[in-house]
């Protein structure tokens, strides 16, 4: 029972029955504490155990990719033919590869590359996608039509063809890798942003801004993009694992990172021949790819729920 339940034992005295009228002090008060959209979103995210766990796992993985290489005490590139293809043990926690290199440090060093490539790819795609989608959504009509048809054409070109063409022209390495990933990777974000902007454009507060005399720049930055931000953030979170996987795939087929540099995809590729005898060489990089992708995806799910204004309580 609530503590302000009426106390029936209080005596009623005549002086309590004098009309005083209402007091208007505090009539316009707001009782709830100030809480911004982001604070509320963070709070909701924290409550979502799965998403929060994923976030912690992700932070752990990021820290490891930054520092894991130095933990084992072994270099990632020093070869030692005496300890080739050794199973994981107390000294080499992930075992060693064909050339006797310590896999623990290689996995984490490779992880750094994979993460960076994933983040870089996602960032570039987001940037291009936002601008492209923003322009298409804002102007609408024929401009929008043409721009969307271009995207449709781009997405129908088979991915492998794009990759092969790029590798033919630019060879192998980091640059063609990024190019291959982002050549068509921005299309999804562009579609998403365009759709969202088309919707936000119809909101009455945009009409109000137009009525006040706001120009396109102000409308796009202050009104359209700010209200699209949450969608963009969630989308980036889902894009990163896609790019990490794309990098893994491209490195696997030899397009990306070249020896002695490595990435998770490259490690997976190198372990192919020894798969029957030394499966651990594939196991660890694959596990890291899987964990990273999983945690980004779970985090993305949680972020989407946390940032959705309709789910505000």
């Amino acid at each position: 029972m609530k503590s302000n339940e009426t106390d029936k034992t209080v005596q009623l005295t005549p002086d309590m029955f004098v009309i005083e009228g209402c007091s208007t002090i505090g009539a316009e008060e707001i009782n709830r504490p100030e809480i911004t959209y982001w604070e509320d979103a963070w709070r909701r995210l924290k409550k979502n155990r799965v998403a929060f766990g994923a976030l912690l796992l992700l932070i752990f993985l990021l820290v490891m990719t930054a520092t894991g290489e130095y933990m084992g005490g072994y270099s990632h590139e020093v070869t030692d033919s005496a300890i080739r293809n050794m199973w994981p043990d107390k000294t080499h926690w992930f075992g060693t590869d064909e050339l006797g290199r310590d896999l623990f440090s290689r996995v984490w060093r490779g992880g750094r590359v994979s993460m960076l490539m994933g983040l870089l790819g996602a960032t570039i795609s987001t940037f291009i996608g936002c601008i492209y989608g923003g322009v298409a959504g804002y102007y609408g009509g024929r401009t929008d039509n043409i721009m969307m048809r271009i995207i449709e054409i781009l997405t129908t070109i088979p991915y492998l063809m794009v990759v092969i063409l790029i590798s033919l022209y630019f060879g192998k390495g980091i640059f063609p890798l990024i190019l291959a990933m982002t050549a068509t990777g921005w299309c999804g974000m562009a579609r998403l942003v365009r759709g969202q902007i088309l919707q936000v454009k119809e909101q009455e507060y945009v009409t109000a801004a137009i009525a006040l005399g706001a120009g396109p720049w102000r409308i796009i930055t202050r009104h359209l993009l700010t209200n699209t931000l949450s969608i963009i953030i969630v989308s980036i979170t889902f894009d990163i694992p896609r790019f990490i996987f794309a990098e893994a795939f491209l490195s696997y087929i030899g397009l990306g990172v070249q020896a002695p540099d490595t990435s998770w995809g490259a490690l997976a590729s190198a372990s192919q021949q020894n798969l029957m005898f030394y499966p651990y060489q594939l196991f660890f990089p694959a596990l890291m790819i899987a964990l990273t992708m999983l945690s980004f995806t779970l985090l993305g799910d949680g972020l989407r729920d946390a940032l959705d204004p309709k789910l505000r309580q």
């Binding site: 507060y205 009525a211 009104h223």
Partner: peptide, 16 residues
């Protein structure tokens, strides 16, 4: 010349 809108929930930018 200015305007006041019908929907008090949709006519204010929630992020401002």
């Amino acid at each position: 010349m200015q305007i006041i809108f019908q929907d008090p929930y949709a006519s204010l930018n929630p992020r401002m």
